[in-house]
Design a protein around this nucleic acid. Structure first.
Length: 587
RNA sequence: GCGCCCGUAGCUCAGCAGGAUAGAGCACCAGAUUCCUAAUCUGGGGGCCAUGGGUUCGAAUCCCGUCGGGCGCACCA
């Protein structure tokens, strides 16, 4: 979703002032105060830590003083002379070690409020990504059963990240890699064959060790009995393995897509590992890597430091991942000649890189051990051809489920896992999604069933949604009284109202920062802060009716306050949309 | 043994590509409030940012060591 840059006058305030600072530096260059061509990447344009210091702050003088062979304060004075030419700047001071703090005319904030209204759902949208294509691969759960809570965090974080990147100006491909070619899907096929025989009336007894025991395979077996009759009941595995596997995987993917839909997640591309093999992609990658001496036939070493009594070295084709920082070289094929997971994954990433400018993978922390090898493979395959593309793997840490303060135990083998569908049904999509985004992904987190559904201000999901609902209920109430939002008397908004605008105006910066860092949780924390500020303002009205949004006998002020409320609601709505959380009108 | 992640207030966590006096919620303390602006409100105390070094004008943030917790470590996926 590319979007051309809006005219400068319509850009968010802090983006405009980044330009103001940039132009001021240009002027100093022309005047000879600054040497030409200094790197300005570290120059900031942000609100001061303490609002009492002003509205916009920059560290430009501190960052550029040294390369300009001057001192920060001297440079700051020259810079201030330029900056104060902007009519919106009503004052500027040097503070601390060389910060420049500018104070803006209140009209600048009223303009920002108008901008929010004009941009609407697009307020905060950025051209930062420049239309470059980012492939975000997430979920990619094995197609052997329903989604369980172990998949949940990565699914939500990946989905929110994809939305965030799209909002920040990237074209985004949401991709799911189906591991439909390994040993696990053969196990699935055998498990389904058992259910098939069961559906034909055979007494199969308990599901044997090593097969998937879940009831969700019963209908799959029944469908196969319907389709094939009894022809495969006593047939050798070689006869039915492939057709059973194909149908079982398809059935699992229907189930998984349904689970994902409950969370509001829809991928653009489902890439099949089996298709990859059928197209000869791993072999092609191997040939290329062998030509470049990155694969050799060697002996697989014992894992480092671990005691392996019965270790026997095996001759295997190994990828030289140690050249890229891995601990040891990794096999791409097994001793029977079939591909390892890594061998196929390597080819898969090469395939993805052909259709994107950057790759992002969302993985569970339990896969941390394989990060180095796959990054090595991508570096080898794309770097050596001069097509090196950025490739990031974001690890999401474990989630501990708690019920009544006690950890909920999960065992995949016995089938006693907590399914995603059950949790979404129990606590709701919004709660699941917001909670998963309410912590930075690289920290572990608890998911306490009791706490996440609590409808109080202690619950961030509720707190943010409640702020939006308050906005909407106020607008409804005003509407019934024949009152409407209006910009006619915006200049009657006072300091408390302007403070709210100042915070809301951070949204575009939060978006760009979060997108650049690939950290959607920042949006959630911002919304919590904005909701908090809104509630605090609302509470002023408890004791002071003159601070309410609807002020009796003052339609001008009421119109301005309603306009403010509507825009705060707009920003909350835009943020929640990125997180995939409903902006409810009532609670 | 090795690799990755984490360690910030009593608890749960933020801290935005190194910046100003380290923030929020809960809990605690002190007030207000029974109000439909309705799932309370206002204010306050509380920190050696695990620890020892290093880098520089400046470090919770970057680098190295130590301690503590989590995850992982064969041709599984």
């Amino acid at each position: 979703m590319t979007r051309t840059a809006t005219p400068a006058a319509q850009r968010p305030l802090f983006a405009q002032f980044a330009d103001v600072i940039d132009h001021a530096l240009d002027a100093l260059e022309r005047a000879g105060t600054l040497p030409p061509g200094l790197a300005r990447g570290a120059v900031t344009c942000e609100p001061p830590r303490d609002a009492a210091h002003g509205d916009v702050s920059t560290n430009a003088a501190m960052v550029l003083a040294r390369p300009a062979a001057t001192n920060p304060r001297a440079l700051a004075e020259r810079l201030i002379a330029e900056l104060t030419r902007d009519p919106r700047v009503t004052g500027a001071q040097i503070a601390g070690p060389g910060f420049i703090n500018m104070r803006l005319d209140a009209a600048a904030w009223r303009d920002e409020l108008r901008l929010i209204a004009a941009a609407g759902d697009d307020y905060g949208r950025s051209a930062l990504g420049g239309g470059s294509v980012v492939n975000v691969e997430y979920v990619s759960a094995n197609p052997t059963g329903p989604m369980h809570m172990g998949h949940c965090r990565g699914a939500v974080v990946g989905d929110a990240l994809a939305s965030l990147l799209a909002f920040a100006g990237h074209r985004v491909i949401r991709e799911y890699y189906i591991n439909d070619a390994g040993g696990q899907v053969d196990v699935l096929a055998r498990s389904v064959h058992l259910r098939y025989r069961e559906a034909l009336g055979e007494a199969v007894g308990a599901v044997p060790e090593g097969l998937y025991p879940g009831d969700y395979l019963i209908p799959v077996g029944a469908a196969l009995a319907q389709e094939f009759g009894a022809i495969y009941a006593a047939a050798p595995e070689a006869d039915w393995l492939v057709p059973f596997r194909t149908r079982a995987v398809a059935a699992m993917m229907v189930m998984i897509r349904d689970d994902l839909a409950r969370l509001g997640i829809h991928h653009d591309v489902f890439a099949s590992e089996a298709d990859l093999h059928a197209a000869g992609k791993p072999a092609a990658a191997e040939a290329w890597l062998r030509d470049h001496d990155l694969i050799y036939d060697g002996l697989l070493e014992a894992p480092k430091g671990k005691v392996a009594e019965d270790w026997e070295p095996v001759a295997l084709p190994l990828f030289r991942s140690t050249r890229f920082g891995d601990d040891q070289d990794r096999p791409i094929r097994k001793s029977d000649g079939s591909w390892t997971y890594f061998g196929a994954d390597l080819a898969y990433h090469f395939q993805k890189s052909a259709n994107a400018d950057a790759l992002v993978n969302i993985w569970g922390a339990d896969h941390a051990g394989t990060v180095k090898r796959i990054k090595a493979a991508v570096a080898a395959l794309t770097g050596a051809t001069g097509q090196s593309i950025p490739f990031e793997i974001k690890l999401v840490q474990m989630v501990q489920l708690l019920r009544d303060g006690q950890p909920v135990k999960m065992s995949k083998r016995s089938g006693t896992f907590v399914t995603l569908a059950d949790v979404v049904d129990e606590v709701g999509r919004d709660v699941v999604r917001f909670t998963m985004l309410s912590r930075k992904p690289d920290a572990q987190m608890d998911f306490d069933f009791a706490k996440v559904v609590e409808a109080s201000k202690d619950n961030p999901v509720f707190y943010v949604q409640y702020a939006h609902a308050r906005v909407q209920s106020t607008l409804r109430k005003a509407d019934l009284a024949g009152l409407t939002a209006s910009v006619a008397a915006l200049d009657r908004l006072g300091d408390e109202e302007l403070a709210l605008i100042r915070l809301a105006a951070q949204f575009p910066r939060v978006i760009e920062g979060a997108a650049a860092a690939r950290e959607p949780h920042r949006v959630a924390f911002f919304l919590y802060d904005l909701a908090g500020a809104f509630h605090a303002y609302w509470n002023l009205g408890n004791d002071r009716p003159d601070k309410r949004f609807i002020v009796a006998d003052d339609n001008g002020l009421t119109g301005a306050r309603l306009f403010l409320a509507a825009q705060i609601g707009q920003v909350i709505r835009n943020g929640l949309a990125l997180l995939g959380v409903t902006a409810a009108d009532t609670l």
